[in-house]
Write a protein that binds this DNA or RNA. Structure first.
Length: 895
RNA sequence: GGGCAUAUAUGUCAAUUGGUAGACAGCUUCCCUUACAAGGAAGAAGUUGGAGGUUCGAGUCCUUCUAUGCCCACCA
């Protein structure tokens, strides 16, 4: 069988996924071991809007690496896929589409028709996402795919709502809220973003004080003059001497016919602005609170679309808020009451989705009291230390701090896309919260009921995700999946939803399941654009993972992402994927080489245990050590360490040294050697598989002897696939430090000779002679590897002895263990060049020795540092002395 | 305003508990050697942002400064 010279990812990516899926490899049921430990992960459901971005690819890769390794280790694994209906975003997008296609608004076509359109939209774009998830190669169980609007998950939402309502943890009430005038819905605090406004203004308005003889005024400063129409007081600090006499007096509020009191409140900072604050309880959160304290009336002057209402007065009613602002300022100017306008940099709250500046206003909404659930989550962290964050810092602290300051959660949204609130009203406005309309009718004793128009916040369904995806719906509370897979093992997600989602999942699971939703939380870094900026559509600096898949292959992309995953943010670089694309090609070609010579051999694990030669013992030791390091790294979520070890093991140890050292035997068809190299290759492919599933599967099937007998025992009856092969664990007995150090000496020798050849500009085609002088043990090592040394150093003969037997006209060198090297160069040697070369090496060593001598002459170091550190320095000094001595002699002998 | 993180070779990033700094890409020289030029061989390249301190020893710990980023809170 002959492989092509280059790896073509597309071929490998074409068929395997479908086969894995059809064979049930992604399902936990494939595991036949009744006692298998379980491992489960639920995917953070991507929004049905848009498509997957690099952050998804990163998270998904990491979850899949974890899952695939555990599966190979024989765990009963479940990786649940799904999507989120993403209320506001989706409604926003479909609304835009509707406007574009038909020039209509949702109201024009009505609730039913609109939601149908959203479902169509969901089918289309959701379908794209599902395709993309498949392309990523992640081993999710599609038979358990979930969507937050599914029947079961919706039932869970209703039951949770009713349960919380019945115990008084959900209530309806008018409070000050964040309102998006464009989307015309309430937003929770977490859905509001800050936006810098550089050209902001601070307006100083003079308010006339009633019954003051000299027409005194009190100046207030505001960034939102239009809200003065809703002012119901002016507040000053009680200790502010300037205004003490004014407290209790009243203001004739311009542009209105209202009279408002001047009050005192500790909240006012006398040192800021004018020291007097206009108070608008209906349109500012701080003013709202002061209003509550001081019993001030709330005057709502705004409509829900951001225009002013009748209470703003005739002149303003119906005006857009910004036009109203302009008009208020103009009128104050006309009245001679506009003191000044200052430039003022400020931060404006905007809607996270549509970026419209939000308004704060009073509105009747549904709320969840979080106190009890918050305490459950805090106790879980305090008593059991769940969930454990990676990286621990800063997430643990941020998480607990946030919980400690948690406020009630606004859960209603004025949208049509989502779970409609299970509350019904009768003619008199009495509310009946129930699991269904029938139940509500029963409770109300009438069927003249109308359901609450609003839907629930998207997060009110996704906060149940860890268990609602395992078939819990609030009626069936004990499901097999729940029993088996909850709590899940780890949640892998991005930083920005720790509060929105992670913390809420903990609270809901503690409340409704009575246990944590996951043990660990791995927070990935952000994938930044090449320029180090955040990727964004507006900047156009985004990189689409699908394009990268197309160009470099899925596997190269996956291992790039995993290799970059230190928990820190990192900038995306095409060069990085390119080097892993090359790595994939390297793996392909190494396999190609092995297969070209595999006649009569097949994978046989026994060949790992009976190695005689140093090189074999060495590579087996390296393999086992690498397996150990990879397993340890993955246990700690140190993905970059695992990738680094794999890369260097495969490329440096296996390809550059082992294949080269074994080449003669392999090409000669020595069956034991070919069997062994195939076996080591096969083990390497297994280690690589979680990162590079397609390539490794493609190659594995080409290996003779790769069949179901290599599966983990939990999968003996499954169709052969590397994804069910036993993941290599490290066998401590096969880690051989002696072989590693002997091999190191051989590598050092060959490298040294190559270095001499390069520096002395010996042509690659010129075969040299090598003279070596060293202790008997070293001589032995070299003697038993003579053929390989000759080949890799491009030499014709090797002379070994206790002392050097070579002409003066030789290039010389010395190894760390004191072994001397001479390469005769009759006529070719440039003595001046050689002298320089030797002197250079001596200088380097002496610089190092000077530093070490200084350390050793420091009594404090010798006395206080650990003995092994001191000994190591002494040993190194001894090595340097031997080497410099030999080099100096060589230098002298040059004449 | 508060909190946190980051600053290491030209670039992007690593560096387990403090033990004297590595990878990839790029660069220089040589080689199409029968797995791979998406390759092989050999190299050059860093006062670890600045300044102090603790320590026998600091990229790592402490203080401070500078720059950048993130989060939280929002004084009108």
């Amino acid at each position: 069988m002959e492989l092509s010279k280059q790896y073509n990812p597309k071929e490998a990516e074409e068929s395997h996924y479908q086969r894995w899926e059809e064979n049930g490899c992604f399902r936990p049921e494939i595991n036949e071991n009744p006692d298998a430990e379980k491992y489960s992960i639920v995917i953070p459901p991507p929004n049905v809007t848009g498509s997957l971005h690099m952050g998804h690819a990163l998270q998904h890769t990491i979850m899949d690496v974890l899952t695939r390794r555990k599966r190979m280790q024989g765990f009963r694994t479940l990786f649940v896929p799904g999507m989120d209906h993403a209320g506001i975003s989706t409604q926003l997008m479909v609304t835009r589409q509707l406007k574009k296609d038909e020039g209509k608004t949702p109201q024009d076509i009505g609730r039913e028709a609109f939601t149908k359109k959203v479902w169509d939209w969901k089918e289309q774009y959701g379908g794209t996402i599902l395709k993309q998830i498949r392309r990523e190669g992640i081993s999710v169980d599609w038979s358990r795919e979930a969507f937050t609007m599914d029947e079961g998950l919706s039932k869970a939402v209703r039951n949770v709502f009713v349960a919380l309502y019945e115990e008084g943890n959900i209530y309806r009430g008018a409070r000050i809220v964040n309102w998006c005038p464009k989307d015309e819905t309430v937003l929770s605090d977490l859905e509001v973003e800050d936006k810098e406004k550089k050209d902001g203004k601070l307006y100083y308005l003079q308010y006339p004080i009633k019954e003051s003889e000299q027409k005194r005024t009190l100046t207030v400063a505001t960034t939102r003059p239009e809200t003065m129409l809703g002012d119901t007081a002016v507040a000053v600090n009680p200790n502010d001497e300037r205004f003490k006499d004014l407290i209790g007096k009243t203001i004739d509020l311009p542009l209105t016919n209202r009279e408002i009191p001047i009050i005192s409140d500790e909240y006012v900072d006398a040192g800021f602005g004018t020291g007097a604050v206009k108070i608008t309880p209906a349109h500012d959160p701080n003013d709202y609170e002061m209003g509550q304290r001081q019993n001030l009336p709330q005057l709502n002057v705004m409509n829900l679309d951001g225009t002013m209402n009748e209470d703003a007065g005739e002149d303003f009613s119906g005006l857009d808020r910004y036009k109203a602002r302009k008009l208020v300022v103009e009128k104050f100017d006309e009245l001679g009451l506009l003191e000044k306008i200052d430039d003022y940099e400020m931060v404006l709250p905007v809607c996270e989705r549509c970026k419209t500046v939000i308004e704060t206003l009073i509105s009747e909404q549904w709320w969840v009291k979080m106190d009890e659930m918050r305490d459950l989550a805090l106790e879980l962290k305090k008593d059991k230390d769940y969930p454990r964050f990676t990286p621990e810092n800063p997430h643990t602290k941020v998480y607990t701090d946030w919980l400690e300051n948690l406020r009630d959660w606004t859960i209603s949204r004025q949208l049509w896309w989502g779970h409609q609130i299970p509350a019904w009203y009768d003619k008199d406005g009495n509310v009946f919260v129930a699991r269904s309309k029938e139940e509500a009718i029963e409770n109300a004793g009438t069927d003249e009921l109308t359901q609450d128009e609003d839907v629930l916040d998207t997060w009110f369904s996704s906060w149940l995700w860890s268990f609602s995806t395992l078939s819990w719906d609030g009626e069936i509370n004990e499901t097999e999946d729940l029993q088996e897979f909850h709590p899940t093992d780890v949640l892998v997600t991005a930083r920005d939803i720790i509060f929105l989602w992670v913390s809420r999942m903990v609270m809901s699971a503690m409340k409704f399941i009575g246990e944590r939703p996951f043990d660990d939380v791995y927070i990935t870094g952000t994938v930044l654009a090449k320029d180090g900026q955040r990727m964004s559509k507006t900047k156009g600096n985004g990189v689409d993972p699908m394009d990268v898949f197309e160009q470099y292959g899925v596997d190269a992309t996956r291992i790039t992402l995993a290799g970059s995953s230190t928990g820190m943010d990192f900038a995306w670089r095409d060069e990085k994927v390119e080097s892993y694309r090359n790595f994939a090609n390297k793996i392909w070609n190494a396999t190609r080489f092995c297969l070209m010579n595999a006649e009569g051999a097949k994978v046989d694990l026994a060949t790992l245990e009976n190695a005689e030669k140093i090189a074999d013992k060495w590579i087996i030791s390296r393999l086992n050590k690498t397996a150990k390091e990879i397993n340890e790294a993955l246990d700690k979520y140190a993905f970059h360490v695992a990738v680094d070890k794999l890369y260097h093991f495969f490329w440096d140890d296996f390809c550059d040294w082992y294949i080269e050292l074994s080449k003669d035997e392999i090409t000669a068809g020595d069956t034991e050697s070919t069997t062994r190299i195939l076996t080591i290759l096969e083990q390497s492919l297994r280690l690589l598989h979680p990162f590079m599933p397609y390539l490794t599967e493609e190659l594995w099937h080409k290996l003779p002897g790769a069949d179901a007998s290599l599966h983990n025992s939990a999968y003996s009856n499954a169709e052969p696939t590397i994804m069910l092969a036993d993941f290599p664990e490290s066998n401590a007995e096969l880690i051989n430090e002696k072989a590693e150090s002997e091999m190191q000496t051989i590598i050092e020798l060959i490298t040294k000779i190559r270095n001499i050849r390069a520096e002395m500009q010996i042509k690659p085609s010129d075969k040299i002679s090598i003279h070596l002088a060293g202790n008997p043990e070293t001589q032995n090592i070299f003697a038993s590897n003579e053929a390989q040394i000759l080949k890799l150093a491009r030499a014709k003969d090797l002379t070994l002895g206790e002392s050097l037997d070579a002409p003066n006209a030789s290039a010389k060198g010395v190894l760390t263990n004191g072994t001397e090297i001479a390469i005769p160069l009759e006529g070719l040697i440039d003595f001046e060049k050689e002298r320089k070369r030797l002197q250079n090496q001596i200088n380097k060593l002496e610089t190092e020795k000077e530093r070490l001598d200084k350390q050793l002459s420091n009594e404090n170091f010798v006395n206080k540092a650990p003995k092994e550190k001191v000994d190591a320095v002494r040993e190194r000094v001894a090595e340097i002395e031997t080497q410099t001595k030999a080099l100096n002699e060589n230098l002298e002998n040059l004449g």
